[in-house]
């Protein structure tokens, strides 16, 4: 059954944290709530969990309204940013916490805990103190604990943000495979596009309490809804007005230049000539800042040596070849 949020709103004094959010999550899929810090995504998650009461709007699963249902009765599992493991309980007792509340018999409980700890790669650590675990291990216990009572929805609040970068990379893929195996849906809150695109089927982009755009990662990257979304998703070449003299077929609101669709050739071979302002190595690839004097803009361009007509020394001149589909009109921010 799908989770439906309708017109959810929450204010703290003068600040509107969540502004009339309407959203649907298809059962069995993962939705990422992606946005910069302070955009209200964690508050939205707490509203879904029932940890905060909304000022307006509702939360429902199928046709069952849950807006007034206390957290304990919603049957949603949650993984917290700081893991929130119970320091007075060991790993096994943490994982079994929800099973005790669900009055699962002790024998079944132990089997289920064993099964889940194995799933998250912590088999045999039942008696370990949670304070003796590494950050990554704590994260795994938090996940096992949330999954143990078989929640009908799993909520994850920046679950990887307290871990170091290399651990984040590997856990990201692991989380993806665990979440795809779940019958329940999941909402995954993050500020990291990479995490959102890796883990989720659908991404909801959030800004200042509102949902800006919802779609798959391909849809979001190909058609960002406005200059803010384009920049936040990692596009470098976003122009609020059309560059002068570029003779563009489209022109209304902001423009996005997909540099990955352009080529560099000898001077005079392209739509305009550009000169190298800065050239930086990013591993095997180059990251060039190019000045398009005729257009009065700079273009950021990434590529390998074989895609360059010559060495990109500062001051070097190239022709920028731009196919029509590289330009995209993306409207303006709401």
């Amino acid at each position: 059954m799908n989770l439906r949020l309708t017109g959810l709103a929450k204010r703290y004094g003068a600040v509107t944290a969540v502004d009339r959010v309407t959203l649907e999550l298809v059962a069995g899929t993962t939705l990422a709530l992606l946005g910069p810090s302070g955009c209200g995504k964690s508050t939205l998650l707490r509203l879904v969990a029932g940890l905060e009461a909304p000022d307006a709007g509702g939360v429902a699963i199928g046709d069952q309204d849950l807006t007034r249902t206390p957290t304990a009765r919603r049957g949603f599992g949650m993984v917290f940013q700081d893991f929130a493991l119970f320091p007075h309980l060991d790993v096994g007792a943490n994982a079994a916490f929800g099973l005790v509340e669900a009055r699962v018999p002790a024998a079944t409980r132990a089997a289920r805990v064993r099964e889940l700890l194995a799933l998250v790669g912590l088999a045999g650590l039942e008696r370990r103190k949670v304070t003796e675990l590494s950050g990554g291990q704590q994260q795994r216990v938090a996940l096992a604990r949330a999954l143990a009572p078989e929640p009908r929805l799993l909520l994850l609040d920046e679950p990887l943000s307290n871990l170091d970068a290399s651990l984040r990379e590997s856990l990201k893929l692991e989380l993806r495979s665990i979440l795809t195996g779940l019958p329940a849906g999941a909402i995954y809150v993050t500020h990291d596009q990479g995490e959102a695109f890796t883990v989720a089927d659908t991404v909801a982009l959030m800004r200042a309490g509102r949902i800006v755009q919802v779609g798959t990662s391909e849809e979001l990257l190909a058609k960002p809804a406005g200059p803010w979304a384009a920049r936040f998703l990692g596009h470098d070449n976003v122009y609020d007005t059309a560059p002068q003299g570029a003779h563009l077929p489209v022109s209304d609101g902001a423009l996005l230049l997909r540099a990955d669709l352009t080529r560099l050739g000898e001077p005079g071979t392209g739509a305009t000539d550009v000169s190298v302002a800065t050239a930086a190595r990013e591993g095997l690839a180059w990251r060039l800042t190019l000045t398009a004097e005729a257009w009065g803009v700079t273009v950021t361009w990434r590529g390998f040596d074989r895609e360059l007509p010559g060495h990109p020394a500062p001051g070097a001149s190239f022709g920028l070849q731009v196919p029509p589909e590289a330009w995209r009109s993306i409207g303006s921010d709401a």
Binding site: G50, M78, F80, F97, A146, P149
Partner: peptide
């Protein structure tokens, strides 16, 4: 400590007195 852990317990099905 407590408010966050209490929230976690609530998501695991524990009622306020529990």
């Amino acid at each position: 400590v407590a408010p966050r852990l209490e929230a976690a317990a609530a998501t695991l099905g524990a009622t306020p007195w529990r």
